[in-house]
Design a protein around this nucleic acid. Structure first.
Lengths: 334, 334
DNA sequence: TGGGTGAATCGAACCGTTTCGATTCGTCGA
DNA sequence: TCGACGAATCGAAACGGTTCGATTCACCCA
């Protein structure tokens, strides 16, 4: 292994000078710096990460705690993971995966062993056993999602309440007077996941405000469940003309079931989805949708964590504003 | 921070004894071991990962190089990633993410800085710039997929050629005499991705062997492309009665397009998919399919890498045998 | 009884970097 | 001309583990 001593010898300086030349923590003359950099390239030097973390008390690694519960939409997660990894690299950090099944002990382990400088936790539930642990850890963290008690924590998420409201507003503006929300699987609501509840709350409140009658119903993503959900919904609410779907995995089946049941989109039934833009565009017809900005969320979460690591002031709560794009699944009611 | 010296003092032994008690690299009396473990718990001791890696020359971390190219199916990737992370934990290792956009330099960086003990590389192409780098690295690696030249490398993948063949055999056994393969997006073939080519080759060879006429055609996953692909296929090959689909993202649209075009599945058109079982089961009708065992692949890849780390003999090439499950999208032709 | 043996434990060196005071040297102002 | 000053660099002490040779001690057998 090439060490900093080798580089120092090759460049004719002291090891500490090499360190300062590379980290920039003290001023080094241009000439020396250039010489050191040349030696680094000539020898193929890479600082030993362990030694560096031992001496500097910084690992340059962020932990990313994965969700593991059912009902999560994999493509959105994966987009988020990739966004986090590349954002971290832009800040000279790497990303260590922690699976959710390790629970709070996993957080203690990676933080306690100084393996990571900070933590990013996905899929936080309202009452999450990890939240108190994060609070007592000596390392900063950023949560994606909101627990019931967010005191002394930094959280970021899409403003799902506003997203639900925007869907209702869009439909109401088009003249609809009876709308329904098809949401996440029942299991997601039962385990008290914030985003699902918040969408529902925003949806219902907006309907109330606009004087539109509304219902909400959960659904599993398999075809049969979707069929049961949608046909049941249409039976109980024959006057229904607008549907909001907040369930990426069920989206395709919803469109298909409507067709099978003889409801044309958008003529007989308007449809608004809450899902990533590329998914909305891929379906037929292309769906009017509120974008779920997984990539932006990932970048933002990393930016917040880096700010905390640099002891910069950080907003406790960040809600990204939803963006609704009008496509072919909604149209003004003549 | 609690150090090994603190634990040693608390337990009334030397630091080295604590180390041996915890790592088990030398025999320690039951009594002492128990005392040390009690002190560890009492003080909440976690060994400093950097110090450990510096002293022992082992980081207990594996690199996982993510794919970033279009046409990859996110759910399968994510399943694989999670499987790798949890398998690694079972071997006392963590997983560090490396995004593919960092290219060969990323591999050099994480290996050269001793940040990881070994590397797992997903989505390897036939002619991949990373392959020669992996060969010259001083750390073991396992590839998911096969490059054109796999000499001195360890590779693991599903036996896609056999998977393609099994689909043909199943259809031929049911009496079909004209079949087609709807494959990955054209871009995937153009960048010379092994698995797509191998499925195609296995499919064509089996058709030849069984005396069945066959075609293969790529498709993008958006609804319009699928419509174009499928209707074009049916026009050019009116006698077609069996379809194999190796494109997870397009699967839903294929089923829907067939319905729109008035072909009932399985009565007018038999359908076999190559995709994860849960996806095949979720569609309507439930699809006969060859399972893509992302989870099993992840576990296997980690097992191979751990074997290499332990200097155990390791097979150069591992092809997991495909498993075809008969469901409702195929049926014997009366 | 004394030397040999093996299990259990100790002590110190070492891993490769960062960091903090100390040192050198050229420059400037009095 | 001398002292002060600041920029550039050096030297050595951490950082917290692991590992290897040495040591202790109880026990056994000749």
């Amino acid at each position: 292994m090439v060490t900093i001593a080798d580089v120092a010898r090759h460049a004719g300086v002291a090891p500490s000078t090499v360190s300062y030349a590379l980290t920039g923590r003290r001023s080094i003359s241009q000439a020396t710096k250039a010489r050191v950099e040349a030696s680094v390239r000539a020898l193929g030097y890479h600082p030993h990460a362990g030694a560096r973390s031992l001496a500097s008390n910084r690992a340059n690694v962020l932990a990313l705690v994965l969700p593991m519960r059912e009902g999560m939409h994999m493509p959105v997660m994966m987009q988020f993971v990739v966004a986090v990894a590349s954002a971290a690299r832009r800040h000279e950090h790497d990303v260590l995966l922690v699976t959710a099944d390790q629970g709070a002990a996993g957080l203690r382990r990676v933080a306690g062993s100084a393996q990571v400088d900070g933590l990013l936790v996905m899929d936080v539930e309202m009452h999450d056993e990890r939240v108190p642990v994060l609070r007592e850890l000596d390392r900063p963290s950023v949560l994606i999602g909101f627990p019931a008690d967010a005191a002394r924590l930094t959280c970021v998420d899409l403003d799902f309440a506003e997203a639900g409201a925007r869907c209702v507003d869009h439909l109401a503006d088009l003249g609809h007077t009876s709308v329904a929300l098809i949401g996440a699987p029942r299991a997601v609501y039962q385990r008290d996941t914030g985003y699902a509840h918040r969408t529902m709350a925003g949806f219902s409140a907006a309907a109330m405000r606009r004087g539109v009658s509304s219902t909400t119903v959960p659904t599993d993503a398999d075809h049969e469940s979707v069929h049961r959900t949608v046909s049941g919904l249409l039976e109980r609410h024959p006057q229904l003309t607008g549907l909001v779907v907040h369930n990426e995995a069920a989206l395709g089946s919803v469109v298909e079931v409507l067709r099978v049941l003889g409801r044309r989109v958008p003529d007989d039934m308007a449809l608004v989805a809450i899902c990533p833009d590329d998914q909305a565009e891929r379906l037929n017809p292309a769906l009017t949708s509120v974008h779920v900005p997984a990539e932006q969320l990932g970048h933002h979460a990393v930016a917040l964590l880096m700010a905390k690591l640099n002891r910069a002031p950080t907003p406790a709560l960040t809600l990204l504003p939803p963006r609704l794009t009008d496509r072919d699944s909604t149209r003004s009611r003549a």
